[in-house]
Amino acid sequence: MTIRHHLSDQLLMAYAAGQLPEAFSLVVAAHLSLCDDCRAQADSFDAVGGAVLEEAGEIAMGEDALARTLARIEWLPRAAAPKPRRAAGIFPAPLVDYVGGDLPAVRWRRVGGGVRQAILPTDRDATARLLYIPAGTAVPDHGHRGLELTLVLQGAFADETDRFSRGDVEIADEALEHTPVALAGQDCICLAATDAPLRFRGLIPRLAQPLFRI
């Protein structure tokens, strides 16, 4: 698998700084699970955080802080060795955590044109959802009010900008109006996150939008 479309430095830094809405952090964590390049970059931004912490200054702890912490760790179990969070199916482990399983566990809802989606539970600053786009089907022409990240998990789609397959992330903002089309051969499954509702250009999808939270 060769990943050609990566996360931006800005997104990786915001992730390392802990400033991404949960829905975006899910897409980032899923991509990092598939992409060693971005994982190494993310680790390095963590190291920047370490350097910032080291230089943050010192504020004295309470007198008994060490004693209290030592008393607490008496009772702490050792954290379990990391369970092999290695996904066996098409969903990376962080996504499995949100779905409660792999593909068969998804509770899809139809949104028209054969396209299905499933909204995942995250905080409300942004929305995460899975999209199921039958091979050869177009997702209605749409623009974006905010930021939208789309990670391909199965199959591939193409739009005016390029072609995206498993592991690739498309980063779309206000400037992009596009018509993603799932390529022939395999149904396309994506994890998408956005911090604003999508707006569709056609009238019918726009009316349907509040109903389906598309």
């Binding site: 899910l26 990092l32 969070r85």
Partner: peptide, 14 residues
């Protein structure tokens, strides 16, 4: 923030 942050898979070498 009372939120959580999704974490990537562990690398298998640990």
């Amino acid at each position: 923030r009372r939120a959580r942050r999704a974490e990537p898979e562990e690398l298998d070498w640990g």
